[in-house]
Simulated scan of single mutants.
Amino acid sequence: MDIPVKFSRFGRVAVVAAVAAVALTSCAANEGGATATSAAASDLKGSLAGSGASSQGSAQEAWVAAFQTANPDVTINYSPDGSGAGRKAFIAGGVQFAGSDSALSDEELSSTFAACAADTKAIDLPVYISPIAVIFNVEGVDELNLDAATIAKIFAGQITSWDDPAIVALNPEAKLPSTPITAVHRSDDSGTTKNFADYLNKNAPDVWTAEPADTFPFQSGEGAKGTSGVVDTVKGGTGTIGYADASKAGDLGVAKIKVGEEFVEYSAEGAAAVVEGSPLVEGREANDIAIKLDRETTDATHYPIVLVSYLIACQEYADPKVADLVKAYAGYIASDAGQEEAAKSAGAAPLSADLAKKVQDAIASIK
């Protein structure tokens, strides 16, 4: 298994230098799968708008800053409006690319994509891998063990107090209060919700009976918009619990999740291992790379509550100038430099060498 998860730390200057260096040798991209820009950095001009997953927010800020520094005549704006909003905006032609914690559905792929050339479709490019943390704020509780069934019951509204016997059984040494539980979920359409729900549906189907979807399925708990909304609500409440991209967990408590017979902390390495061991979704076009995540692993080196966030782009753009910019930006994001920047700024897991090659080959096919 080839999972390059250990990075050296280096500053923004080094990132910029790497982007520029790869950009200026972009002719190699055509030979090796579009490892960065498909035109010299000094030749790139124009603007791009993207919208979507708030989980990508920190990484997108870092990617945009580095790319624009290396390409001063390019302006990129990314609005972290949520995965569902991003996909809708992209399909309607309001943005040139989308970020999404869910790959396009079969129904969405049957849409007409306004920014794409006539009779062409969009493709999903996995560019950001991150664990989803189960965050909590309970007075007197610093450590918490949870299994899938207990998490499902909490968020479905079936467990309502922190001293519930199911939680006590998993945490015999903890001093759990009788405080009511406030389970905080995303109020907006969210790929993070879909990934979280997919884990619960696969591992506790008797409790989490709803099919995984971007919309939270139960009339329980408290809703909050965006990753930052969930984190702020958990932080500002009492007896709260929520789920969010791990990069935003901050100083909140984070539960250990039962995998096999062990309780496992989230890690970039564990998230990357799950993705590496998961197959691609069948029946997709050659350059549409959607991953069917293995949520039921019992390997304690894996962390199964993971999201793969995609950059969604046209296979062929109606405007070739837009295609050049998207290829350049996506190529940087999927490059070693871009992946290291996401690891440094957002705690993301890197693409494996094999997956990175698939993504770069798909980017090279954009026209």
Results as ranks from 00 to 15, higher is better:
residue 327 K to D: 03
residue 63 W to H: 10
residue 104 L to K: 08
residue 227 T to K: 06
residue 224 A to Y: 01
residue 279 P to G: 07
residue 224 A to R: 05
residue 223 G to A: 08
residue 30 N to V: 14
residue 215 T to C: 08
residue 164 D to L: 11
residue 297 T to G: 13
residue 25 T to P: 10
residue 83 S to Q: 04
residue 362 A to M: 14
residue 248 K to F: 11
residue 14 A to Q: 11
residue 75 T to P: 06
residue 111 S to V: 08
residue 269 E to P: 01
residue 8 S to C: 05
residue 153 K to S: 14
residue 161 S to H: 03
residue 5 V to A: 14
residue 73 D to V: 05
residue 194 K to V: 01
residue 309 S to Q: 10
residue 35 T to W: 15
residue 262 E to T: 15
residue 51 S to E: 13
residue 290 A to R: 11
residue 98 A to N: 12
residue 323 A to V: 07
residue 168 V to Y: 00
residue 210 A to T: 06
residue 317 Y to A: 03
residue 241 I to Y: 04
residue 206 D to L: 09
residue 328 A to Y: 04
residue 53 A to W: 00
residue 217 P to H: 05
residue 97 F to T: 09
residue 79 S to M: 07
residue 247 S to M: 12
residue 32 G to M: 15
residue 71 N to P: 02
residue 153 K to C: 06
residue 146 L to H: 09
residue 109 L to Q: 15
residue 96 Q to Y: 08
residue 164 D to F: 10
residue 237 G to R: 12
residue 367 K to H: 13
residue 233 T to S: 00
residue 275 V to F: 13
residue 261 E to T: 10
residue 339 Q to E: 08
residue 92 A to M: 04
residue 154 I to P: 10
residue 324 D to S: 10
residue 334 A to M: 14
residue 239 G to N: 10
residue 316 E to R: 15
residue 331 G to D: 11
residue 159 I to E: 08
residue 169 A to L: 08
residue 24 L to I: 02
residue 223 G to I: 04
residue 191 G to R: 00
residue 63 W to M: 06
residue 82 G to N: 05
residue 198 D to L: 07
residue 136 F to T: 00
residue 52 G to P: 08
residue 102 S to H: 06
residue 124 D to Y: 02
residue 285 E to N: 14
residue 284 R to T: 04
residue 43 D to F: 11
residue 176 L to T: 03
residue 311 L to V: 05
residue 264 V to P: 01
residue 348 A to R: 01
residue 139 E to G: 05
residue 106 D to S: 08
residue 169 A to N: 09
residue 87 R to G: 01
residue 109 L to G: 11
residue 314 C to L: 09
residue 94 G to I: 00
residue 44 L to Y: 05
residue 90 F to H: 04
residue 181 I to T: 01
residue 322 V to G: 00
residue 250 G to V: 06
residue 236 G to P: 03
residue 105 S to I: 06
residue 185 H to P: 03
residue 90 F to Y: 04
residue 189 D to I: 04
residue 53 A to V: 01
residue 310 Y to N: 08
residue 248 K to V: 02
residue 251 D to R: 10
residue 194 K to H: 00
residue 249 A to D: 00
residue 253 G to W: 00
residue 129 I to H: 15
residue 48 L to I: 13
residue 338 G to I: 06
residue 73 D to Y: 01
residue 346 A to S: 14
residue 237 G to C: 07
residue 275 V to T: 07
residue 280 L to C: 13
residue 193 T to S: 02
residue 62 A to L: 12
residue 248 K to R: 12
residue 38 S to G: 14
residue 353 A to L: 13
residue 122 A to Y: 05
residue 148 A to I: 07
residue 285 E to A: 15
residue 307 L to G: 11
residue 154 I to H: 10
residue 67 F to V: 12
residue 135 I to M: 10
residue 60 Q to K: 12
residue 242 G to N: 03
residue 61 E to M: 11
